[in-house]
Design a protein around this nucleic acid. Structure first.
Lengths: 221, 221
DNA sequence: ATAAGACTATACTCACGAGTATATTTAGCC
DNA sequence: GGCTAAATATACTCGTGAGTATAGTCTTAT
Protein backbone atom coordinates (compact mmCIF):
# COMPACT_ATOMS: atom_id res chain seq x y z
CA UNK A 1 0.00 0.00 0.00
CA UNK A 2 2.74 2.42 0.99
CA UNK A 3 4.63 1.76 -2.23
CA UNK A 4 1.51 2.39 -4.22
CA UNK A 5 1.00 5.88 -2.87
CA UNK A 6 4.71 6.60 -3.35
CA UNK A 7 4.46 5.72 -7.02
CA UNK A 8 1.35 7.78 -7.25
CA UNK A 9 3.07 10.88 -5.95
CA UNK A 10 6.13 10.38 -8.11
CA UNK A 11 4.06 10.11 -11.27
CA UNK A 12 2.02 13.11 -10.26
CA UNK A 13 5.12 15.27 -9.69
CA UNK A 14 6.61 14.55 -13.12
CA UNK A 15 3.62 15.97 -14.98
CA UNK A 16 0.95 18.53 -14.24
CA UNK A 17 -1.93 16.97 -12.40
CA UNK A 18 -4.54 15.47 -14.73
CA UNK A 19 -8.07 16.67 -14.13
CA UNK A 20 -9.28 13.46 -12.50
CA UNK A 21 -7.42 11.28 -10.03
CA UNK A 22 -3.85 10.73 -11.18
CA UNK A 23 -2.84 7.71 -13.17
CA UNK A 24 -1.38 5.02 -10.92
CA UNK A 25 -3.57 6.19 -8.13
CA UNK A 26 -5.12 3.36 -6.13
CA UNK A 27 -8.42 3.89 -7.89
CA UNK A 28 -6.68 3.53 -11.23
CA UNK A 29 -5.04 0.36 -10.08
CA UNK A 30 -8.42 -0.82 -9.04
CA UNK A 31 -9.99 -0.34 -12.42
CA UNK A 32 -7.01 -2.09 -13.97
CA UNK A 33 -7.56 -4.90 -11.53
CA UNK A 34 -11.17 -4.99 -12.47
CA UNK A 35 -10.29 -5.30 -16.12
CA UNK A 36 -7.85 -8.08 -15.41
CA UNK A 37 -10.44 -9.92 -13.40
CA UNK A 38 -13.00 -9.43 -16.10
CA UNK A 39 -10.56 -10.84 -18.61
CA UNK A 40 -10.01 -13.82 -16.38
CA UNK A 41 -13.74 -14.38 -16.20
CA UNK A 42 -14.02 -14.30 -19.97
CA UNK A 43 -11.02 -16.49 -20.56
CA UNK A 44 -12.21 -19.05 -18.05
CA UNK A 45 -15.64 -19.05 -19.59
CA UNK A 46 -14.09 -19.63 -22.99
CA UNK A 47 -12.18 -22.62 -21.69
CA UNK A 48 -15.24 -24.09 -20.03
CA UNK A 49 -17.40 -23.54 -23.07
CA UNK A 50 -14.84 -25.23 -25.20
CA UNK A 51 -14.51 -28.15 -22.84
CA UNK A 52 -18.18 -28.80 -22.18
CA UNK A 53 -20.16 -26.76 -24.65
CA UNK A 54 -22.11 -23.59 -24.06
CA UNK A 55 -25.36 -25.13 -22.89
CA UNK A 56 -23.70 -27.70 -20.73
CA UNK A 57 -21.69 -25.11 -18.90
CA UNK A 58 -23.56 -23.40 -16.11
CA UNK A 59 -22.50 -20.11 -14.66
CA UNK A 60 -21.94 -22.01 -11.45
CA UNK A 61 -19.38 -24.11 -13.29
CA UNK A 62 -17.57 -21.03 -14.45
CA UNK A 63 -17.73 -19.47 -11.01
CA UNK A 64 -16.35 -22.64 -9.45
CA UNK A 65 -13.49 -22.71 -11.93
CA UNK A 66 -12.68 -19.19 -10.80
CA UNK A 67 -12.98 -20.07 -7.10
CA UNK A 68 -15.82 -17.67 -6.78
CA UNK A 69 -19.62 -17.70 -6.71
CA UNK A 70 -22.16 -16.92 -9.36
CA UNK A 71 -23.06 -13.37 -8.38
CA UNK A 72 -19.39 -12.47 -8.72
CA UNK A 73 -19.50 -13.54 -12.31
CA UNK A 74 -22.59 -11.42 -12.78
CA UNK A 75 -20.62 -8.56 -11.37
CA UNK A 76 -18.45 -8.61 -14.46
CA UNK A 77 -20.89 -9.53 -17.19
CA UNK A 78 -24.57 -8.91 -17.66
CA UNK A 79 -25.58 -12.43 -18.54
CA UNK A 80 -24.49 -15.69 -20.03
CA UNK A 81 -25.14 -14.60 -23.55
CA UNK A 82 -22.91 -11.59 -23.18
CA UNK A 83 -20.24 -13.84 -21.77
CA UNK A 84 -20.27 -15.90 -24.94
CA UNK A 85 -20.28 -12.76 -27.00
CA UNK A 86 -17.22 -11.43 -25.23
CA UNK A 87 -15.40 -14.68 -25.83
CA UNK A 88 -16.32 -14.45 -29.45
CA UNK A 89 -15.13 -10.88 -29.68
CA UNK A 90 -11.86 -11.61 -27.94
CA UNK A 91 -10.97 -14.17 -30.55
CA UNK A 92 -12.29 -12.15 -33.41
CA UNK A 93 -10.22 -9.13 -32.58
CA UNK A 94 -7.01 -10.96 -33.42
CA UNK A 95 -8.23 -11.87 -36.85
CA UNK A 96 -9.65 -8.45 -37.57
CA UNK A 97 -6.36 -6.86 -36.64
CA UNK A 98 -4.58 -9.00 -39.17
CA UNK A 99 -7.15 -8.21 -41.83
CA UNK A 100 -6.90 -4.48 -41.22
CA UNK A 101 -3.16 -4.45 -40.97
CA UNK A 102 -2.87 -6.26 -44.24
CA UNK A 103 -5.32 -3.95 -45.95
CA UNK A 104 -2.73 -1.19 -45.82
CA UNK A 105 0.17 -3.32 -46.98
CA UNK A 106 1.41 -3.10 -50.54
CA UNK A 107 2.67 -6.66 -50.68
CA UNK A 108 1.22 -9.08 -53.25
CA UNK A 109 -2.17 -10.43 -52.23
CA UNK A 110 -0.76 -13.92 -51.99
CA UNK A 111 1.56 -12.92 -49.16
CA UNK A 112 -1.07 -10.87 -47.41
CA UNK A 113 -3.48 -13.77 -47.56
CA UNK A 114 -0.88 -16.08 -46.09
CA UNK A 115 -0.38 -13.71 -43.19
CA UNK A 116 -4.08 -13.49 -42.47
CA UNK A 117 -4.34 -17.26 -42.61
CA UNK A 118 -1.58 -17.64 -40.11
CA UNK A 119 -3.18 -15.28 -37.65
CA UNK A 120 -6.50 -16.90 -38.28
CA UNK A 121 -5.11 -20.27 -37.31
CA UNK A 122 -3.62 -18.89 -34.14
CA UNK A 123 -6.88 -17.26 -33.12
CA UNK A 124 -8.88 -20.40 -33.78
CA UNK A 125 -6.42 -22.53 -31.86
CA UNK A 126 -6.60 -20.20 -28.88
CA UNK A 127 -8.96 -20.55 -25.94
CA UNK A 128 -11.45 -18.42 -27.78
CA UNK A 129 -11.42 -20.42 -30.97
CA UNK A 130 -14.25 -22.68 -30.01
CA UNK A 131 -16.46 -19.75 -29.09
CA UNK A 132 -15.73 -17.98 -32.34
CA UNK A 133 -16.78 -20.97 -34.34
CA UNK A 134 -19.67 -22.08 -32.20
CA UNK A 135 -21.23 -18.80 -31.18
CA UNK A 136 -23.99 -19.56 -33.54
CA UNK A 137 -27.15 -17.68 -34.01
CA UNK A 138 -29.26 -20.14 -32.11
CA UNK A 139 -27.59 -19.38 -28.81
CA UNK A 140 -27.94 -15.65 -28.93
CA UNK A 141 -30.61 -13.01 -28.97
CA UNK A 142 -31.39 -11.52 -32.38
CA UNK A 143 -29.50 -8.34 -31.51
CA UNK A 144 -26.29 -10.16 -30.61
CA UNK A 145 -26.75 -12.47 -33.51
CA UNK A 146 -26.80 -9.51 -35.87
CA UNK A 147 -23.65 -8.08 -34.35
CA UNK A 148 -21.80 -11.34 -34.72
CA UNK A 149 -22.97 -11.84 -38.25
CA UNK A 150 -21.74 -8.39 -39.12
CA UNK A 151 -18.33 -9.02 -37.61
CA UNK A 152 -18.00 -12.39 -39.28
CA UNK A 153 -19.00 -10.85 -42.53
CA UNK A 154 -16.16 -8.37 -42.29
CA UNK A 155 -13.69 -11.22 -42.16
CA UNK A 156 -15.39 -12.93 -45.03
CA UNK A 157 -15.29 -9.78 -47.10
CA UNK A 158 -11.64 -9.31 -46.21
CA UNK A 159 -10.81 -12.78 -47.45
CA UNK A 160 -12.78 -12.33 -50.64
CA UNK A 161 -11.08 -9.03 -51.33
CA UNK A 162 -7.65 -10.59 -50.94
CA UNK A 163 -8.53 -13.41 -53.28
CA UNK A 164 -9.92 -10.99 -55.79
CA UNK A 165 -6.85 -8.80 -55.60
CA UNK A 166 -4.66 -11.84 -56.01
CA UNK A 167 -6.42 -12.46 -59.30
CA UNK A 168 -5.73 -8.89 -60.36
CA UNK A 169 -2.12 -8.58 -59.29
CA UNK A 170 -1.30 -12.01 -60.68
CA UNK A 171 -0.12 -13.46 -57.41
CA UNK A 172 -3.07 -15.87 -57.28
CA UNK A 173 -4.98 -17.88 -59.82
CA UNK A 174 -8.32 -16.32 -60.73
CA UNK A 175 -11.20 -18.14 -59.06
CA UNK A 176 -14.56 -17.58 -57.46
CA UNK A 177 -13.73 -15.46 -54.40
CA UNK A 178 -16.88 -16.42 -52.55
CA UNK A 179 -16.34 -20.15 -52.79
CA UNK A 180 -12.63 -19.88 -52.10
CA UNK A 181 -13.28 -17.75 -49.03
CA UNK A 182 -15.81 -20.28 -47.75
CA UNK A 183 -13.42 -23.14 -48.28
CA UNK A 184 -10.59 -21.38 -46.51
CA UNK A 185 -12.74 -20.20 -43.63
CA UNK A 186 -14.15 -23.70 -43.22
CA UNK A 187 -10.81 -25.42 -43.19
CA UNK A 188 -9.45 -22.99 -40.62
CA UNK A 189 -12.54 -22.83 -38.46
CA UNK A 190 -12.54 -26.57 -38.27
CA UNK A 191 -9.22 -26.43 -36.50
CA UNK A 192 -11.19 -25.57 -33.38
CA UNK A 193 -12.74 -29.03 -33.54
CA UNK A 194 -9.61 -31.08 -33.59
CA UNK A 195 -6.71 -28.97 -32.39
CA UNK A 196 -5.36 -29.73 -28.95
CA UNK A 197 -2.49 -27.80 -27.53
CA UNK A 198 -0.40 -30.84 -26.68
CA UNK A 199 2.89 -29.54 -27.91
CA UNK A 200 3.25 -31.85 -30.90
CA UNK A 201 1.98 -29.34 -33.36
CA UNK A 202 1.48 -25.68 -32.76
CA UNK A 203 -0.90 -23.35 -34.50
CA UNK A 204 1.70 -21.83 -36.79
CA UNK A 205 2.71 -25.28 -38.03
CA UNK A 206 -0.87 -25.99 -38.91
CA UNK A 207 -1.18 -22.62 -40.59
CA UNK A 208 1.93 -23.26 -42.67
CA UNK A 209 0.66 -26.62 -43.85
CA UNK A 210 -2.71 -25.18 -44.74
CA UNK A 211 -1.20 -22.23 -46.56
CA UNK A 212 0.89 -24.57 -48.63
CA UNK A 213 -2.03 -26.83 -49.34
CA UNK A 214 -4.26 -24.02 -50.50
CA UNK A 215 -1.46 -22.53 -52.53
CA UNK A 216 -0.33 -25.63 -54.39
CA UNK A 217 -3.47 -27.72 -54.38
CA UNK A 218 -3.53 -31.48 -54.59
CA UNK A 219 -2.83 -32.05 -58.24
CA UNK A 220 0.70 -33.07 -59.15
CA UNK A 221 2.59 -30.19 -60.71
CA UNK B 1 -58.20 -52.32 -46.76
CA UNK B 2 -59.70 -54.75 -49.27
CA UNK B 3 -56.88 -54.09 -51.74
CA UNK B 4 -54.30 -54.73 -49.08
CA UNK B 5 -55.49 -58.23 -48.30
CA UNK B 6 -55.80 -58.94 -52.03
CA UNK B 7 -52.14 -58.08 -52.55
CA UNK B 8 -51.24 -60.11 -49.56
CA UNK B 9 -52.88 -63.24 -50.95
CA UNK B 10 -51.41 -62.75 -54.39
CA UNK B 11 -47.88 -62.46 -53.06
CA UNK B 12 -48.37 -65.43 -50.81
CA UNK B 13 -49.59 -67.62 -53.69
CA UNK B 14 -46.54 -66.93 -55.87
CA UNK B 15 -44.12 -68.39 -53.38
CA UNK B 16 -44.28 -70.95 -50.61
CA UNK B 17 -45.43 -69.39 -47.39
CA UNK B 18 -42.60 -67.97 -45.34
CA UNK B 19 -42.43 -69.21 -41.78
CA UNK B 20 -43.78 -66.04 -40.20
CA UNK B 21 -46.68 -63.92 -41.41
CA UNK B 22 -46.43 -63.35 -45.15
CA UNK B 23 -44.68 -60.30 -46.55
CA UNK B 24 -47.23 -57.61 -47.49
CA UNK B 25 -49.45 -58.82 -44.75
CA UNK B 26 -51.08 -55.98 -42.83
CA UNK B 27 -48.61 -56.48 -40.03
CA UNK B 28 -45.78 -56.04 -42.45
CA UNK B 29 -47.36 -52.90 -43.79
CA UNK B 30 -47.63 -51.71 -40.28
CA UNK B 31 -43.98 -52.14 -39.51
CA UNK B 32 -43.21 -50.34 -42.76
CA UNK B 33 -45.50 -47.57 -41.63
CA UNK B 34 -43.76 -47.48 -38.35
CA UNK B 35 -40.42 -47.12 -40.04
CA UNK B 36 -41.69 -44.36 -42.23
CA UNK B 37 -43.06 -42.55 -39.23
CA UNK B 38 -39.84 -43.00 -37.39
CA UNK B 39 -37.96 -41.58 -40.33
CA UNK B 40 -40.30 -38.62 -40.34
CA UNK B 41 -39.60 -38.04 -36.67
CA UNK B 42 -35.88 -38.11 -37.27
CA UNK B 43 -36.02 -35.92 -40.34
CA UNK B 44 -38.21 -33.37 -38.58
CA UNK B 45 -35.91 -33.36 -35.61
CA UNK B 46 -32.97 -32.74 -37.92
CA UNK B 47 -34.69 -29.77 -39.46
CA UNK B 48 -35.61 -28.30 -36.10
CA UNK B 49 -32.13 -28.85 -34.69
CA UNK B 50 -30.66 -27.14 -37.69
CA UNK B 51 -33.06 -24.22 -37.45
CA UNK B 52 -32.85 -23.58 -33.72
CA UNK B 53 -29.97 -25.62 -32.39
CA UNK B 54 -30.08 -28.78 -30.36
CA UNK B 55 -30.48 -27.27 -26.93
CA UNK B 56 -32.97 -24.70 -28.04
CA UNK B 57 -35.21 -27.31 -29.56
CA UNK B 58 -37.47 -29.05 -27.10
CA UNK B 59 -39.11 -32.35 -27.79
CA UNK B 60 -42.38 -30.47 -27.57
CA UNK B 61 -41.20 -28.35 -30.50
CA UNK B 62 -40.48 -31.42 -32.54
CA UNK B 63 -43.76 -33.01 -31.58
CA UNK B 64 -45.63 -29.85 -32.54
CA UNK B 65 -43.88 -29.74 -35.90
CA UNK B 66 -45.15 -33.28 -36.44
CA UNK B 67 -48.67 -32.42 -35.28
CA UNK B 68 -48.30 -34.85 -32.47
CA UNK B 69 -47.48 -34.85 -28.76
CA UNK B 70 -44.33 -35.60 -26.90
CA UNK B 71 -45.06 -39.17 -25.82
CA UNK B 72 -45.58 -40.05 -29.45
CA UNK B 73 -42.06 -38.96 -30.20
CA UNK B 74 -40.85 -41.07 -27.30
CA UNK B 75 -42.67 -43.97 -28.89
CA UNK B 76 -40.15 -43.88 -31.72
CA UNK B 77 -36.95 -42.92 -29.98
CA UNK B 78 -35.63 -43.52 -26.52
CA UNK B 79 -34.58 -40.01 -25.71
CA UNK B 80 -33.41 -36.73 -27.13
CA UNK B 81 -29.83 -37.79 -27.30
CA UNK B 82 -30.68 -40.80 -29.39
CA UNK B 83 -32.68 -38.55 -31.66
CA UNK B 84 -29.61 -36.48 -32.36
CA UNK B 85 -27.58 -39.60 -32.84
CA UNK B 86 -30.01 -40.96 -35.40
CA UNK B 87 -29.86 -37.69 -37.30
CA UNK B 88 -26.12 -37.91 -37.26
CA UNK B 89 -26.16 -41.47 -38.45
CA UNK B 90 -28.61 -40.77 -41.25
CA UNK B 91 -26.29 -38.17 -42.71
CA UNK B 92 -23.19 -40.18 -42.09
CA UNK B 93 -24.48 -43.22 -43.91
CA UNK B 94 -24.41 -41.39 -47.23
CA UNK B 95 -20.79 -40.47 -46.83
CA UNK B 96 -19.75 -43.89 -45.63
CA UNK B 97 -21.41 -45.50 -48.61
CA UNK B 98 -19.35 -43.33 -50.92
CA UNK B 99 -16.18 -44.11 -49.04
CA UNK B 100 -16.82 -47.84 -49.13
CA UNK B 101 -17.93 -47.90 -52.72
CA UNK B 102 -14.80 -46.07 -53.75
CA UNK B 103 -12.57 -48.37 -51.75
CA UNK B 104 -13.30 -51.14 -54.25
CA UNK B 105 -12.83 -49.01 -57.33
CA UNK B 106 -9.65 -49.20 -59.34
CA UNK B 107 -9.80 -45.64 -60.62
CA UNK B 108 -6.97 -43.22 -59.80
CA UNK B 109 -7.20 -41.87 -56.26
CA UNK B 110 -7.76 -38.36 -57.57
CA UNK B 111 -11.05 -39.39 -59.17
CA UNK B 112 -12.15 -41.45 -56.23
CA UNK B 113 -11.46 -38.55 -53.91
CA UNK B 114 -13.49 -36.24 -56.11
CA UNK B 115 -16.42 -38.61 -55.93
CA UNK B 116 -16.28 -38.83 -52.17
CA UNK B 117 -16.08 -35.06 -51.93
CA UNK B 118 -19.15 -34.68 -54.04
CA UNK B 119 -21.18 -37.07 -51.91
CA UNK B 120 -19.80 -35.44 -48.82
CA UNK B 121 -21.08 -32.06 -49.96
CA UNK B 122 -24.51 -33.45 -50.68
CA UNK B 123 -24.74 -35.08 -47.28
CA UNK B 124 -23.66 -31.95 -45.48
CA UNK B 125 -26.10 -29.80 -47.42
CA UNK B 126 -28.97 -32.16 -46.55
CA UNK B 127 -31.28 -31.81 -43.59
CA UNK B 128 -28.90 -33.94 -41.59
CA UNK B 129 -25.82 -31.91 -42.37
CA UNK B 130 -26.14 -29.65 -39.40
CA UNK B 131 -26.49 -32.59 -37.03
CA UNK B 132 -23.48 -34.34 -38.48
CA UNK B 133 -21.32 -31.35 -37.93
CA UNK B 134 -22.74 -30.22 -34.63
CA UNK B 135 -23.36 -33.52 -32.89
CA UNK B 136 -20.42 -32.74 -30.73
CA UNK B 137 -19.23 -34.66 -27.77
CA UNK B 138 -20.59 -32.22 -25.27
CA UNK B 139 -24.18 -33.00 -26.14
CA UNK B 140 -23.94 -36.71 -25.84
CA UNK B 141 -23.28 -39.35 -23.25
CA UNK B 142 -19.80 -40.82 -23.28
CA UNK B 143 -21.05 -44.00 -24.91
CA UNK B 144 -22.70 -42.20 -27.81
CA UNK B 145 -19.77 -39.89 -28.06
CA UNK B 146 -17.45 -42.82 -28.55
CA UNK B 147 -19.65 -44.26 -31.25
CA UNK B 148 -19.74 -41.00 -33.14
CA UNK B 149 -16.03 -40.49 -32.83
CA UNK B 150 -15.46 -43.95 -34.22
CA UNK B 151 -17.71 -43.32 -37.19
CA UNK B 152 -16.17 -39.94 -37.90
CA UNK B 153 -12.78 -41.48 -37.67
CA UNK B 154 -13.65 -43.97 -40.38
CA UNK B 155 -14.37 -41.13 -42.75
CA UNK B 156 -11.19 -39.40 -41.75
CA UNK B 157 -9.19 -42.55 -42.33
CA UNK B 158 -10.90 -43.01 -45.67
CA UNK B 159 -9.87 -39.55 -46.76
CA UNK B 160 -6.32 -40.00 -45.58
CA UNK B 161 -6.03 -43.28 -47.40
CA UNK B 162 -7.19 -41.73 -50.64
CA UNK B 163 -4.73 -38.90 -50.32
CA UNK B 164 -1.96 -41.32 -49.55
CA UNK B 165 -2.84 -43.51 -52.50
CA UNK B 166 -2.94 -40.46 -54.72
CA UNK B 167 0.65 -39.82 -53.76
CA UNK B 168 1.55 -43.39 -54.65
CA UNK B 169 -0.33 -43.69 -57.92
CA UNK B 170 0.83 -40.28 -59.06
CA UNK B 171 -2.64 -38.81 -59.43
CA UNK B 172 -2.08 -36.43 -56.54
CA UNK B 173 0.81 -34.41 -55.25
CA UNK B 174 2.46 -35.97 -52.22
CA UNK B 175 1.50 -34.16 -49.04
CA UNK B 176 0.72 -34.71 -45.39
CA UNK B 177 -2.45 -36.85 -45.51
CA UNK B 178 -3.53 -35.90 -42.03
CA UNK B 179 -3.44 -32.17 -42.60
CA UNK B 180 -4.95 -32.43 -46.04
CA UNK B 181 -7.79 -34.57 -44.71
CA UNK B 182 -8.46 -32.06 -41.95
CA UNK B 183 -8.51 -29.18 -44.39
CA UNK B 184 -10.87 -30.95 -46.75
CA UNK B 185 -13.18 -32.13 -43.99
CA UNK B 186 -13.25 -28.65 -42.52
CA UNK B 187 -14.05 -26.92 -45.77
CA UNK B 188 -16.86 -29.34 -46.49
CA UNK B 189 -18.25 -29.52 -43.00
CA UNK B 190 -18.45 -25.77 -42.95
CA UNK B 191 -20.93 -25.90 -45.76
CA UNK B 192 -23.53 -26.77 -43.14
CA UNK B 193 -23.01 -23.32 -41.65
CA UNK B 194 -23.68 -21.26 -44.72
CA UNK B 195 -25.52 -23.37 -47.25
CA UNK B 196 -29.18 -22.61 -47.78
CA UNK B 197 -31.22 -24.56 -50.26
CA UNK B 198 -32.51 -21.50 -52.07
CA UNK B 199 -32.09 -22.79 -55.57
CA UNK B 200 -29.25 -20.50 -56.59
CA UNK B 201 -26.56 -23.00 -55.93
CA UNK B 202 -27.02 -26.66 -55.31
CA UNK B 203 -24.78 -28.99 -53.40
CA UNK B 204 -23.16 -30.51 -56.46
CA UNK B 205 -22.18 -27.05 -57.72
CA UNK B 206 -20.50 -26.34 -54.44
CA UNK B 207 -18.79 -29.71 -54.54
CA UNK B 208 -17.47 -29.06 -58.05
CA UNK B 209 -16.05 -25.69 -57.06
CA UNK B 210 -14.40 -27.13 -54.00
CA UNK B 211 -12.98 -30.08 -55.88
CA UNK B 212 -11.44 -27.73 -58.41
CA UNK B 213 -10.08 -25.47 -55.72
CA UNK B 214 -8.44 -28.29 -53.80
CA UNK B 215 -7.10 -29.76 -57.01
CA UNK B 216 -5.55 -26.66 -58.52
CA UNK B 217 -4.84 -24.58 -55.45
CA UNK B 218 -4.63 -20.82 -55.43
CA UNK B 219 -1.24 -20.26 -56.96
CA UNK B 220 -1.18 -19.23 -60.60
CA UNK B 221 -0.08 -22.09 -62.82
C1' DA C 1 -67.33 -59.55 -30.75
C1' DT C 2 -63.52 -59.36 -28.16
C1' DA C 3 -58.80 -59.86 -26.52
C1' DA C 4 -54.08 -58.20 -27.49
C1' DG C 5 -51.17 -54.99 -28.74
C1' DA C 6 -49.81 -50.79 -31.09
C1' DC C 7 -50.42 -45.95 -30.98
C1' DT C 8 -51.45 -41.44 -29.08
C1' DA C 9 -52.93 -37.97 -25.63
C1' DT C 10 -53.53 -35.75 -20.92
C1' DA C 11 -51.46 -34.40 -17.12
C1' DC C 12 -48.17 -34.82 -14.34
C1' DT C 13 -42.89 -35.00 -11.75
C1' DC C 14 -38.60 -33.41 -11.08
C1' DA C 15 -34.09 -31.45 -11.70
C1' DC C 16 -31.41 -28.03 -13.26
C1' DG C 17 -29.85 -23.62 -14.19
C1' DA C 18 -30.35 -18.52 -15.16
C1' DG C 19 -30.88 -14.70 -12.82
C1' DT C 20 -31.69 -11.81 -8.27
C1' DA C 21 -32.70 -9.81 -3.50
C1' DT C 22 -30.15 -9.10 0.23
C1' DA C 23 -26.42 -9.27 3.46
C1' DT C 24 -21.48 -8.92 4.42
C1' DT C 25 -16.88 -7.83 3.83
C1' DT C 26 -13.08 -5.00 2.10
C1' DA C 27 -10.64 -0.88 0.51
C1' DG C 28 -10.18 3.83 -0.41
C1' DC C 29 -11.39 8.56 1.16
C1' DC C 30 -12.19 12.90 4.09
C1' DG D 1 -12.78 6.68 12.69
C1' DG D 2 -16.55 6.55 10.26
C1' DC D 3 -18.55 7.03 5.25
C1' DT D 4 -19.00 5.33 0.60
C1' DA D 5 -18.61 2.27 -2.98
C1' DA D 6 -16.91 -1.91 -4.87
C1' DA D 7 -16.63 -6.78 -4.43
C1' DT D 8 -18.23 -11.10 -2.93
C1' DA D 9 -21.35 -14.45 -0.70
C1' DT D 10 -25.82 -16.72 0.96
C1' DA D 11 -30.00 -18.14 -0.15
C1' DC D 12 -33.46 -17.71 -2.67
C1' DT D 13 -37.26 -17.55 -7.25
C1' DC D 14 -38.96 -19.18 -11.21
C1' DG D 15 -39.32 -20.98 -15.82
C1' DT D 16 -38.32 -24.52 -18.79
C1' DG D 17 -37.85 -28.82 -20.55
C1' DA D 18 -36.77 -33.89 -20.27
C1' DG D 19 -38.94 -37.75 -19.24
C1' DT D 20 -43.16 -40.67 -17.38
C1' DA D 21 -47.52 -42.66 -15.30
C1' DT D 22 -51.79 -43.46 -16.80
C1' DA D 23 -55.55 -43.82 -19.61
C1' DG D 24 -57.93 -43.87 -23.79
C1' DT D 25 -58.40 -45.27 -28.93
C1' DC D 26 -57.83 -47.76 -32.95
C1' DT D 27 -56.26 -52.18 -35.61
C1' DT D 28 -55.64 -56.78 -36.30
C1' DA D 29 -56.25 -61.62 -35.21
C1' DT D 30 -59.10 -65.33 -33.54
Amino acid sequence: MASRSARSRKAASALPDPPGPSLWSPVHLRVRDRERKRDAVIRTAAREFRARGYHNTSLDDIATALNVTKPTVYHYVQNKEQLLFECFRAGLRQIMEAVEQVAESKAPARERLALVMSRYAQAIASDFGWCMVQAENQDLSPAMSRKIKALKSEIDQGLRRLIQQGGSDGSLRRCDPKMAAFAIAGAFNWIAHWYRDDGKLDATDVADKFVELFALGLDPR
